[in-house]
Simulated assay, not measured.
Amino acid sequence: MVLLRLDSLALSRSRFALSPFAETLSTMIVLSRPCTEPWLTAWHARHHAAFRARLDADPFTRGLVMLCGSTKYLPDHLVLPPSGGMGTTLESELGEVARVPDTAVRNSLVQSVAHSWENHTLDWLTGHAHAARTAELVREVWQEHVAPDWPSRRALLERDVTYRAGLLAAHGWPRALHQMSRRSAWVGSDTIRFSDRPGPDRMVGPDGMLFVPVSGPRGAWLCEAPGRPHALVYPARGAGGQAEGERRDPARSERPVARLIGAGRAAILRELERPATTSELAALLGQSLGTVGGHLAVLREAELLVSTRVGRRVVYQRTALGDLLADAGPGSGSSESKPT
């Protein structure tokens, strides 16, 4: 198994970050495969044909994407740790990727092929400027398949960070990292099991680690670069619950609780099944900050939710009474698919 062994100062300096590049890479992997998650069906159907056409039109694109979707070792130039924290921009990441030398790209691709569970060759790796071509591919996929719903994706990712930051403040890192991925787990007082597959352990120095959520429904990977903190990319809680252009079932707003407190407040109460901030709720529901803030004030006065400060954020969560009201009426306990 692969273990991440943490320096004595690593935990106190570990933090969360976002990576538009990792989000796009995750999207590419999802679109390269048949859709198996019910909540992603509509989004996948809208984007899959165009993405497959892109693969069919360019051997380099097809070779790289199909390899990434079937290997235990992602190419090194695709797994550089983000350097901008929660404000990391795609352009900054693309600039770093584009500067990777061709020799380094080829060497890491050879490793990826060796660790693949499918048969691959590198016949598609022709010409030069491999990293720059990769960066341009990621930019195009971002613009076509990710950017249109990035605000809602970002809200989901920030919500996961908010949730885990709350656990961190209350219970420490072991609880905050619980079930980040199917294979990761806390082992002892200073070690994270990253994978149950064979591989060398990593030493995490005093700069700590970065934890980077993506909205892909599965998969986790480790980002490494000399002189930079390791970054663990993991699927966010609730990933895939509502992709671009999807709307909630209007029938749900007709439940008795919506008629009792109003559809807007009922929607917020349902969303607070997981704690969230005002801005996260506004992005998820497509409402203004003022509208959401007004609804939150009424719900808090009615003792249906409480607020807690986590760092610079104010996080709202339902009270026991709020839980009862949100689950009341027809539609509760229905058989619709829900992300876990």
Rank of each mutant, 00 (worst) to 15 (best):
A258I: 12
L284E: 15
R255Y: 06
G286C: 13
V233E: 03
L177E: 03
A220E: 02
H171T: 12
R270K: 13
R237C: 02
R193E: 10
A243D: 13
G227Q: 10
D249T: 06
G286Q: 13
E271K: 10
A276Y: 07
E280S: 13
H178P: 00
P213S: 02
M203A: 08
R183H: 09
S152G: 14
S181A: 13
F211Y: 02
V233W: 04
P235Y: 12
V233D: 00
L269I: 04
T191M: 06
S152P: 07
P200V: 00
L269E: 05
P256E: 11
L157K: 02
L156W: 00
G172H: 06
P174M: 10
E273D: 10
V146N: 14
R237N: 04
S279I: 09
P235R: 08
L285W: 06
F194T: 07
E273Q: 09
G227T: 11
H230F: 14
L284F: 08
A276G: 11
R255A: 15
A243M: 14
P250H: 03
G262H: 11
T191W: 01
V212C: 09
R259N: 11
A266I: 05
L157A: 06
M209C: 10
G188Y: 05
L210Q: 02
G172V: 05
D207C: 01
A243T: 10
E271P: 00
P256R: 08
Q242K: 15
I261N: 14
H178G: 05
P174R: 09
G286L: 13
Q287I: 05
A231K: 01
A263H: 15
A165G: 00
S215A: 14
I261W: 14
L222P: 06
L284P: 03
P229W: 04
A165V: 00
C223K: 02
R153K: 10
A231R: 02
H178T: 06
A155Q: 02
V204Q: 02
Q242S: 13
G208F: 07
A266V: 04
D249V: 06
R153Y: 06
A251Q: 06
P206C: 09
V214R: 11
S279T: 14
G264F: 01
F194V: 08
L222A: 06
Q242F: 07
Y163F: 11
E224T: 12
G240R: 03
L156D: 01
A220K: 01
S253Y: 10
P148W: 02
A263T: 15
H178F: 13
G238A: 08
F194Q: 08
A169Q: 15
P174E: 09
Y163G: 01
P213D: 02
A258Y: 10
S253E: 09
W221L: 01
R175G: 04
P174S: 09
T277S: 15
D149E: 15
A276F: 08
L222V: 08
I268H: 03
R159G: 14
R274E: 14
M203E: 11
Q287F: 08
R252V: 15
G199D: 12
G172I: 05
P256C: 10
G286S: 12
W186L: 02
E246A: 15
A283M: 06
Y234L: 03
A185S: 14
Y234G: 02
L167H: 09
R265E: 14
G205C: 07
A169C: 12
G216N: 05
E158T: 07
R259W: 12
L177P: 04
G166T: 07
E280I: 11
R265P: 03
A258M: 12
P235G: 07
G188W: 05
